[in-house]
Computed example of a mutant assay.
Amino acid sequence: MDQTAPTDLEAAVVALGCFWNVEAAFGALDGVVRTTVGYAGGQAPDPAYATLGDHAEAVRVEYAPARLRYTALLDRFWSLFDPTLTPAKRRYQPPARAPERRAGGTGAGLTGRRRRAGRAGRAC
């Protein structure tokens, strides 16, 4: 556990396709303390990158509300959202059941979490 992190954090979960670019974009915001990548939604109890199925790649963003407003997170989300992308990254979907693209939001937690410290991301 990070002993220097503030204790009065709030969290939001966003899904915009590949989590690496999204993690970097949100992690670079002043006031973001920690990001965690994982998978949201879907039916498999323990999804993995190679067997993503009907899950969405998602990022949990923990932030200090005294330094960063939730509306700033929404602004970053909408600046990254591209409605022209093909629905739901079909390469991860069973062909007959590809759901519509998930736009993300402040949903429940992530499954198959992988915690990442720092702000560096990896391109997809």
Rank of each mutant, 00 (worst) to 15 (best):
T4D: 15
A5M: 09
P6W: 09
T7H: 11
D8S: 13
L9A: 03
V13P: 09
V14Q: 11
C18P: 11
W20H: 08
A24Y: 03
A24C: 04
A28W: 03
G31P: 14
V33Y: 10
T36A: 07
T36N: 06
G38K: 09
G38Y: 08
Y39R: 04
A40Y: 00
G41P: 09
Q43G: 04
Q43V: 04
A44M: 01
P45V: 10
P45T: 12
A56Q: 11
A58R: 10
V59L: 01
R60E: 15
V61H: 00
E62R: 13
A64S: 10
A66D: 14
R67E: 12
R67T: 13
Y70P: 06
A72T: 15
D75Q: 15
D75Y: 05
F77M: 06
W78D: 05
S79W: 06
L80P: 04
F81L: 14
P83M: 01
P87F: 01
R91S: 06
Y92I: 00
Q93T: 03
Q93H: 10
Q93S: 12
P94V: 04
P94E: 07
A96D: 14
A96R: 11
R101V: 02
A103S: 07
G104N: 04
G107V: 01
G107P: 00
A108L: 07
R116I: 15
G118K: 09
R119F: 06
A120H: 13
A120G: 08
